[in-house]
Structures are given as C-alpha cells and as structure tokens.
Design a protein around this nucleic acid. Structure first.
Length: 315
DNA sequence: AAATTAGGCAACCGCCCATGA
DNA sequence: ATCATGGGCGGTTGCCTAATT
C-alpha cells in the first residue's frame, strides 16, 4: 500500500494560479506566516489548493525579493561553475543567487544554458584547443581524462560520451595528461574558452569563486568534525591565474566548503591536514564570510550524488 | 491569415529525508 | 526502533506565446 496523498486530489484546484488566489495566499502568509504547516495552510487561507502547491507558489513566485527575467553574466557563471561542481542540485545553486529560485535556475539551465554549453562543446570538437599549463604547476598527475567534449544530459543524469572511470583508456587522455573543462566565463584568457583544472587525489572539486552563502531555508548544517573525517580530508583550489585564487574548497567526508586558501600555498597538489588545521580553516572561512544571515556558510554535497554527477571531474 | 512548430516557463508528480510521536 | 507525516527537491509535463512556414 502506498502512502496517503498529502491532500484530496479530487477537491483541490490545479493549474495556473489566479490573481485572487495569489492575493489570498500572499495576504495570509504576510499576516500569519506559514505556521510551519503547508498542508493546513490552504484551508486556513481559504484556498482550494494542495499545500505543496501553495508552498511552491509562494517560494517561486509570491515571496518578496524574487528576481525574474534575464540572468546576468555573473549569475550565468555561478550556475555553470556550481553545476560542474555539484551537478543538478538546483536548490544549492539557488542559495548562491539571491532572488533566484531553484525552479528558475533549472528552467534556465534546461532551456538556455545547456544549449549554450553544447554549442561551445561542439565548437571544441571541431578544433581541439591548445593546452594551457600554468607555469607554477609542478607535476601534473597522470591519467587525467580530457573531458572537453562531454556535456551533461539531465534526462539521463549522465554525461554524454562519458564512460566509467575504470575503462578510461590511455589513448583518450590528451597529450599533456591534463584535464579540461569548458568554461568561457572565468576571468582569464585561454584559447577557445578553455581552462584547465587539475584534480587532486581522487576527487576534484575546485573553482575560483565566491564562498557559498547559505541554504535557501536559512538552516544551519554545521557539525562537529571528528578525527576520522580528517583522514578523508582534502583541499582543492584553482591553478594560479584561474578564477579567484583566494578561495579554496575543503572537502572532508561528504562535506565541502569554501575557505581562505592557506597562505603561501600556490600549488594544486593535495594538502595534508591534521584535525586542528581543518578546524582552523573552517573557522576562518565561516568568520570571514560576508553572508551573515546564517549560522555558518556550509553547504554539503551528498557523496553518492556527487560521484554520479560530477564524474567527469574525476580521473 | 491560418496552421504548425519550437521555446519558455509555471506547475505538478513522486521520491527521499528529517522529524516527532 | 519503527512508523507516519510533512517538507524539500529534482524531473517532467503541459500550457501559452512567439516564430516560422
């Protein structure tokens, strides 16, 4: 037996919201709040709608400071970078773009951004770009796969043209054993809009970018770090000259967050930390963050989903 | 001008997870 | 520890409008 439906589907109205319904919902929430119970809200507000429908309407359309319309270049960049990092975690991405909803971003990705990137991808297939190597990069680890021609397909939740890591053939690697990702938006000049990224150890998560701000619900996800977490701890950052070199992504266990890059660190190789180092980095990251409406600025990435969706950053 | 096609977006569906009883 | 419930999320659908034939 399946679970009971959240509302009586026969008696609730579906389809587009009328202005009257909008104003009823808006007025009610502005007066009384949601009361932490969306299921009961429509009845109290005099609406013949499913609670989930009310929630969606409020979050995506009625709540204050919602931004509609064209996405800026900056927003575009944030979406692309985060998508490459965490996949289709629209709510997490939306949390980095004030005023934007996950639905908005999802639609934007599916209708425009994806096509834009696919166009770039097909360009790159016609003419393989030269491979820029940052001068400061000492040793490029072997076995990085050239992923420049792959693109993500949400319907199949996979990257077109991608194959399991275990079957990556050496002849698929590019001639410098570097790793490529399409990104025309970062502030650097590399031929054909390409930038090199260098995986660290087994997992790559790094982009020059602003630190994460908060989750959309304003919740805090902080958790004490244990010594066993530290054994899995890794740090990543962009090669010199790419993106924002000041930030550094920490990854420990299934958690990731931005932190200040340790002073004096300019390479792309893994850093070894002990427990105190990790705590110090995370503390400084939290206290330096400009988004103060939250207890901390952590966002966490489900490891299984990350592996599934960000495979092309692995080697 | 009418019909058809494509694109964009709001809304729905159903699954998963967190929480509280 | 288990179960029921609601919230949250990503994927998908379907309607509306604009563009094209």
């Amino acid at each position: 037996m399946g679970r009971a439906p959240c509302c009586d589907k026969a008696s609730v109205k579906k389809g587009p919201w009328s202005p009257e319904e909008d104003s009823k919902l808006k007025d009610y929430i502005e007066k009384y709040g949601t009361g932490g119970n969306w299921i009961a809200l429509p009845h109290k507000a005099g609406l013949k709608r499913c609670g989930k429908s009310c929630r969606l309407r409020w979050l995506n359309y009625l709540r204050p400071n919602i931004k509609h319309g064209e996405f800026s270049e900056e927003e575009d960049m944030v979406i692309r970078n985060l998508f490459a990092t965490i996949g289709s975690r629209w709510s997490v991405i939306a949390a980095q773009l004030p005023g934007r909803t996950d639905n908005d971003i999802k639609n934007y990705w599916n209708t425009k951004l994806k096509k834009k990137l696919m166009a770039l991808s097909s360009q790159s297939q016609r003419k393989p770009p030269p491979l820029p190597i940052p001068s400061s990069h000492q040793t490029i680890p072997p076995s990085y796969k050239d992923c420049s021609s792959y693109y993500y397909t949400p319907s199949t939740r996979s990257f077109e043209g991608f194959e399991p890591l275990s079957t990556v053939q050496s002849d698929l690697l590019n001639h410098n054993n570097t790793f490529l990702a399409t990104d025309s938006s970062l502030n650097h000049t590399t031929p054909d809009s390409f930038v090199s990224y260098y995986p660290v150890k087994e997992k790559l998560l790094m982009f020059g970018s602003e630190p994460s701000c908060s989750s959309s619900d304003g919740s805090s996800h902080g958790k004490e770090i244990k010594q066993e977490d530290v054994s899995n701890f890794q740090g990543f950052c962009a090669p010199n000259g790419y993106g924002d070199n000041h930030k550094f992504m920490l990854s420990y266990g299934n958690r990731n967050q931005w932190a200040e890059k340790p002073s004096g660190y300019h390479g792309e190789t893994p850093l070894d930390y002990d427990l105190e180092d990790v705590k110090r980095l995370i503390d400084s990251s939290s206290s330096n963050n400009s988004c103060n409406n939250n207890n901390n600025n952590h966002f966490f990435i489900d490891e299984s989903k990350r592996q599934e969706k960000v495979m092309y950053y692995y080697y």
